[in-house]
Design a protein around this nucleic acid. Structure first.
Lengths: 124, 124
DNA sequence: CCGGATCCAAGACGATACTG
DNA sequence: CAGTATCGTCTTGGATCCGG
């Protein structure tokens, strides 16, 4: 029995999964829930620059895929908490690594870009 | 001395890095170079469904960021090879994990989507 | 507090044809 | 073989305002 799924295959269902993971804000939301449940406004404040509309869309998508859970308390004013499901926590492992990689390699990337920029100039 | 970079901050340079990593085809190209250098046509065949234009754009971006190297042999017909740089190989580690996660959790995601679909129907 | 509704802009992505 | 050129589409995402 070989591998069941392969993202390199055009019609493999894993591509839709990858597409969801790769969505612009998924890595932010999943990482933001790393240290426990958070409320909507809390998430919005933590993930700087995200708009309420996009945050809502992202949360709904992740909920549909079973990566986060939404718990609504019957209070007024409203009180809603989002948390990672076990499946979401398993995704957190690679996504945390991606986040860390991005944060740790900023200087290397910027240096490469500067070098590339310079090479382009030299060719003129 | 605290952490230098934080993707949660709106203006942090790590966001541009994350944006590049998150580009639709980055994870495919980096993973495709996992087991050694490949030629353009080889990549295109391996990453099913990618168009030459998009593949070129992705390769150029990754090259500009110092993640892959492009080696051109002075032959006719043309012979060009792409390979991961050390920096690119360091990115391969988390991106390979992302790819594996996507491939391994297809059934879980599909089950969650079906459940979600059913819940939506039940509310009607 | 937690969103929903609406409108709009950008750019990513795709299809196709062509060339050194 | 390894791309370019062109064009069109179409999904994302952003801005803003409103409502339960």
């Amino acid at each position: 029995m070989g591998k069941a799924y392969n993202v390199m295959a055009a019609t493999c269902p894993s591509r839709t999964v990858l597409h969801r993971i790769g969505a612009r804000w998924t890595v932010f939301v999943v990482n933001a829930l790393d240290d426990g449940p958070r409320r909507f406004t809390d998430l919005k404040a933590h993930i700087q620059g995200i708009t309420p509309k996009v945050l809502t869309e992202t949360l709904r998508s992740l909920e549909a895929d079973g990566l986060i859970s939404r718990h609504e308390y019957a209070e007024n004013p409203p009180h809603v908490e989002y948390a990672l499901t076990p499946l979401g926590r398993s995704l957190l492992v690679p996504l945390r690594a991606v986040r860390l990689w991005a944060e740790q390699h900023v200087p290397a990337i910027e240096a490469a870009r500067a070098r590339h920029e310079k090479d382009a100039d030299d060719e003129v």
